[in-house]
Design a protein around this nucleic acid. Structure first.
Lengths: 198, 198, 198, 198
DNA sequence: GCGTAAGCGAGACGGTACGTCTTGTCTTCTG
DNA sequence: CAGAAGACAAGACGTACCGTCTCGCTTACGC
């Protein structure tokens, strides 16, 4: 009944963990996600392959952790209280990361891999998508309570209208994610959000 | 000096082509794109591996062709002339395909693979994304000329607001793409598109 | 600079030693020498791997010690003084161990491993082969002095003629080592050993 | 019922086969059997690992084939008709191979490995031991019919007395296999074989 | 209508990377 | 503070597919 008792995190070697994540990110930036191999990460990091397999279920999981560790701190922003301005700033901070030459493609590749690996999808959904959506939802919700957004608005739809276009451009149309574009997007969405009169 | 003269399409065996595409789609539905191999397609289709490599550059290209052949006819619709209704119908027809149990995941997987394979990305962009976008753009453009849409609207932004959310749900949030949702989305977007008065 | 000062035998934990040897022998009998691992011995004996590596240089050394401890007492016999009968009894006692279902294969495997591991070969040669040969040599030597064996006999050749066939059957021809066979062997060898007349 | 259809020997690449056997023997001589790996053979022979696994079940099988191919022709001899002389020559030719610096240890290692690998044991028994024994048996049998060997002699015992000592020295006592020794052995055994009067 | 050049099914080939296994060392925690 | 527990670096294992190649066989032109 016991089963494949998982390893003890307390005994984990932090040096190895850091080396693996750094090398993974480094190699991924150099040669792209598809040409990255666990063998290469292990060799370059001076680490046994088993040490990687012990702590991560897949290549995607390693890279996801590495990318998230670099990315997440950069999409956090402190709201000023000005609803419309905050919305603009939040989307801008996300777009800024997405259009970065080394990070954007990595994120796209990870989302791509996630389509082929349910476990990775879970990880990404919970690690990035949900948190950002939740943040945005609270933001909209508060604005709605304050009467800055029409009361009959479906917040899910609204949030999708804001985030969807960013991901669409990153993953599919590959069109540039300039601040100009983000501002136009936010402005147009706001047109639909604002209460009928005022 | 010339180089790897490509094969003669006239002498191509149509039976083999059909068998490959059908088996590819079949196996892809059964075990998912990631666990599909060219070896398996060849074996199952009773075809030499070389015959696949002769006509397609990659696994993704085979599946893309198979999926597009099944999908494209289903997202075509004949406009009725009623701008808002047509918009709704177009998005609905796309959402219908996306939420199909066997097709939606295949499309998501292909878009995923495309993130890791530039050639496939090209193929998909040109085979699906661009055509649909172009269709939509003409639609919006005509409506704008007819004064049904505000003159200062950025049509790129508008199109992204319509398609982005669909792809976002298919690829990232995995939230359901019901007709209800599509209608709410279209309605909200229209709010932002309609001219100031009216 | 000194080097890997070896551990102090006085502080050795006898309980661990016994557990290791017993488990090694046990597992070796169950799954065969080739599928025996040091990890398994340690785990099964409730002992740290280091404790094994501290006291034995290799898997073979552990098993050799375990097997010898069980085997050696069983091939000792007390001479009766009757030269020919003693010879027969000595070979019989060796054959008896060799044909035991659980022990014979273990001995064969150890001798096999010894071909690939010089240190183990040393150990086995000194722990088994030499002692038995020496015993036999003295036996023959005494018989020679007593005129029971022709004076011009090369005792090395004679000993090889007695032991060689046993090992040959155990290791190579795998033919059965019955008492009948041993008796025939001894009788034939004796024909060559006896002095020309009478 | 079908099962893992084995590969077609007709399509086998002889160049690869030769390269593998030569490299295997070469590396085995350089570093010894234990430190030989299939990876190294494949790399050195410029061959895919799968090509080795396709045609041989194990490292031992490769080396066995390589060694046998080199060894077998060297232990064949054409009988002169002189029974005792032929016996001597046969054993000498075997001993000559066994004491060769590069071949003897290889044979010992293979016999060692065979103790741990039943399939290899089969192969060796059938490829070497049996043929040599059979040859010898016929020889003895003919001599027996000609009255050169006592009629009541057990030929199995006699053969073991001839071969056993050679293997014993190769595998266990590691004592030298000089022609001098072989002659003494044959002479002593003959003493036991010759008919009572003569 | 006949040869010759292609496409074809089949599958062996040289490779790469996989994920697992075992070794022998090193580290940490515990009795 | 000895030893069990077990994480670690290293690297071989045997497997799965990759994309290329070489076989005969079968089309289907083009002379």
């Amino acid at each position: 009944m016991a089963g494949a008792s998982s390893p003890d995190p307390k005994r984990r070697n932090e040096r190895s963990r850091r080396a693996i994540l750094e090398v993974a990110l480094q190699l991924c930036k150099e040669r792209g996600y598809a040409k990255l191999t666990i063998e290469a990460i292990a060799a370059e990091a001076g680490v046994g392959k088993q040490t990687i397999y012990r702590w991560w279920p897949s290549k995607g999981a390693v890279v996801a952790e590495a990318v998230l560790e670099e990315t997440l701190p950069r999409v956090r922003f402190t709201p000023t209280g000005d609803f419309e301005r905050d919305l603009r700033l939040q989307l801008r901070s996300i777009a800024r990361v997405m259009r970065e030459a080394e990070l954007g493609p990595r994120i796209a590749e990870l989302v791509g891999e996630a389509q082929l690996d349910p476990a990775l999808a879970e990880r990404i959904t919970h690690g990035v998508i949900r948190p950002l959506r939740e943040l945005n939802r609270q933001h909209l919700s508060r604005a709605q309570e304050a009467g800055l957004v029409r009361a009959d608005l479906d917040l899910d739809v609204a949030a999708d209208m804001l985030f969807g276009p960013l991901w669409f451009r990153l993953l599919l149309s590959k069109a540039p994610l300039t601040n100009r574009y983000v501002d136009a997007l936010v402005e147009t969405v706001l047109t639909a959000l604002r209460p009928p009169e005022g």
